[in-house]
């Protein structure tokens, strides 16, 4: 009977799908612990770095004047900045760093980021501002391309913690170049560098935002869109961060109190900022990547877990249907035989 065979085939298909999803879920579970540890280790470093950066930035009287990477951080940006000749950008352009994954099958992980970016891009375009995008992870680039936003530069999403540091370094370098107006898009560089005297077209943005999945816990990832450049100045010590600091201080070390105590620093503020701000940017990207890696694995585990559950449920339903059909077939066959026998008798 054709129908029975169809159902049997379907059960087979669902079973092999379940094998795959359950294997993926187990792999993700095994990777999750490693990714989570890496992220927590990195967070410790990130929190301390953020504390130092915050402490110094808060004590500046006029941050915008102190360093180009703080320009526009507090209050309106001064209108005079050097724009390279040939810069096609209007003022007010915004750059995005979009962090997604290389592979799918991880629930709403990538689409959440993509939707968020699309929403922001749409709002900015309506204001008549230019948008530039740097992507980390194939999924974000592919999505934005269909949306008509080609990435200026692309990086493969890291999966191991050793790769995170290197990728973060390169992305940070590009983000800072973009902000400083010295960024040369990959394709354009090769085209125009031969023509002597012709300045390479550069792209400049007045703000860089970082969009990534923040790993809240194993079942919750949330999309964050943080301003990366100009380096944001944290409000005050007492507001939000101490709680986060305290949570991390549970390792029994006498915590260096994050206070406003006057601290000596060397060399002067300007040079300190020269060193500090690039590191701050790099650390922020690093943290985002670590979070994204852990969040991806967690999202994949959750997604594959529920896919496995769904498959099991479906197999149950199909098996029930199969048995019912089979019984119906047997019954009707019996009826035919009995009917035939009765006909012969009479």
């Amino acid at each position: 009977m054709a129908n029975l065979k169809e159902i049997r085939n379907r059960i087979g298909t669902v079973k092999s799908t379940r094998k795959i999803t359950s294997a993926m879920s187990r792999i993700a579970a095994a990777r999750l612990r490693r990714a989570q540890t890496a992220m927590e280790n990195a967070r410790q470093y990130g929190v301390r770095m953020a504390a130092i950066v915050g402490e110094i930035l808060r004590e500046l009287d006029d941050p915008a004047a102190m360093h180009p990477m703080l320009r526009g951080a507090g209050g309106p940006a001064p209108a005079t900045h050097l724009v390279m000749p040939g810069t096609p950008t209007k003022p007010g352009a915004v750059g995005f760093i979009v962090v997604t994954s290389e592979r799918g099958l991880c629930g709403g992980f990538n689409s959440a980021v993509n939707r968020q970016v699309q929403r922001e891009i749409k709002a900015l375009r309506e204001q008549g501002r230019d948008v530039h995008v740097l992507t980390v992870g194939r999924k974000g680039r592919a999505y934005l391309k269909t949306y008509g936003q080609v990435a200026l530069a692309h990086h493969v999403a890291p999966t191991k913690s050793e790769e995170v540091v290197d990728t973060a370094k390169r992305v940070a370098f590009e983000a800072m170049a973009l902000f400083a107006g010295t960024f040369t898009p990959e394709g354009a560089a090769a085209d125009t560098s031969d023509e002597a005297g012709e300045p390479k077209p550069t792209v400049k943005v007045d703000e860089v935002r970082l969009v990534f999945n923040y790993f809240r816990n194993v079942i919750t990832q949330e999309v964050r869109a943080d301003r990366l450049l100009p380096v944001p100045i944290p409000e005050s010590d007492e507001s939000g961060d101490p709680s986060k600091d305290q949570a991390k201080a549970g390792d029994g070390q006498p915590r260096a109190a994050v206070t406003n105590a006057i601290r000596a620093f060397e060399p002067d503020t300007k040079q300190l900022l020269d060193h500090l701000l690039p590191v701050a940017v790099e650390t922020a990207i690093q943290q985002a990547l670590y979070n994204s890696v852990a969040a991806e694995v967690a999202a994949r585990r959750t997604a594959m877990d529920s896919a496995t559950d769904n498959a099991t449920e479906l197999i149950g339903e199909l098996t029930l249907q199969y048995n019912r059909e089979r019984q119906a077939a047997i019954t009707s066959e019996l009826m035919e035989i009995i009917g035939g026998a009765e006909a012969l008798k009479s």
Binding site: I52, A256, A257, V279
Partner: peptide, 17 residues
């Protein structure tokens, strides 16, 4: 490269990449 931080409590922390 990184930072050296000496806290009031006398903890010397080297934050480095």
């Amino acid at each position: 490269s990184g930072f050296l931080e000496v806290s009031e409590a006398g903890v010397v922390t080297i934050l480095t990449e």
